[in-house]
């Protein structure tokens, strides 16, 4: 039962959505719409469980006094503060908006901007023409890096057009080839899931 019921669910709902696509009758479209709406509702709980897990992991860290447990207090405090601000004051205006604008945006933006420095360091240390293939990669990268910014246009007016050609011809060709391969793999994986051959996403356990 623990295995069969879930497999019946994945098969039934999956093939219903596929069949409904080919039958333009109202009743099939309405049923599809209902299932898709339910899906969206269930997905909302995936986010809630994610937040629940963040709380659980950090409470556990504090209770066991694991390394850097003090920082977990900060994390939980700000999580509670943000939720309190939102649920009491509403999502618009007030403290919730203020925290979003003056803490979440700058922190998120800065966190990812750190990578600029590491990309520069990697360009110096690792971007080397050791083989003909690597040389080709390097040349394409340098042309795009220079040709895509205003200084490229300033150096040579033809640079932007050269980059545009690289992007729309060799880049498009390779990306399209990869895309076909990925799509065929994805579709076969989806079929395996619907037919119950692929079950790893259901989690471990013998049953």
């Amino acid at each position: 039962m623990k295995q069969t019921i879930p497999l019946i669910i994945v098969f039934t709902f999956g093939f219903f959505v596929i069949i409904a696509f080919f039958i333009p009758l109202r009743v099939f479209q309405d049923a599809s719409q209902t299932f898709e709406t339910w899906y969206t509702g269930v997905i909302a709980f995936f986010v809630f469980i994610g937040i629940f897990n963040i709380i659980k992991v950090n409470v556990n860290k504090i209770q066991r006094k694991l390394s850097d447990w003090q920082y977990s207090i900060i994390l939980l405090f700000f999580l509670a503060f943000m939720m309190g601000a939102g649920f009491i004051g509403g999502p618009e205006g007030g403290v919730f908006d203020y925290l979003f604008e003056h803490m979440q945006i700058p922190l998120g933006a800065t966190m990812f901007s750190l990578l600029a420095f590491f990309v520069a360091s990697a360009a110096f240390r690792a971007f080397r023409a050791r083989t003909p293939e690597a040389t080709l990669l390097l040349i394409a990268a340098v042309i795009v890096m220079i040709g895509r910014v205003p200084i490229g246009y300033y150096i040579w007016k033809g640079f932007p057009n050269l980059v545009e050609w690289i992007m729309s011809v060799p880049n498009t060709a390779a990306k399209r080839g990869i895309l076909f391969g990925a799509d065929l793999g994805l579709i076969s994986m989806a079929l395996r899931v619907l037919l119950g051959i692929e079950r790893s996403y259901m989690g471990g356990g013998r049953e």
């Binding site: 098969f11 709902f13 999956g14 959505v17 899906y39 269930v42 994986m189 989806a190």
Partner: peptide, 8 residues
């Protein structure tokens, strides 16, 4: 349930 709908 979500895998069924999404994979279809």
């Amino acid at each position: 349930f979500t895998m069924g709908v999404a994979m279809a």
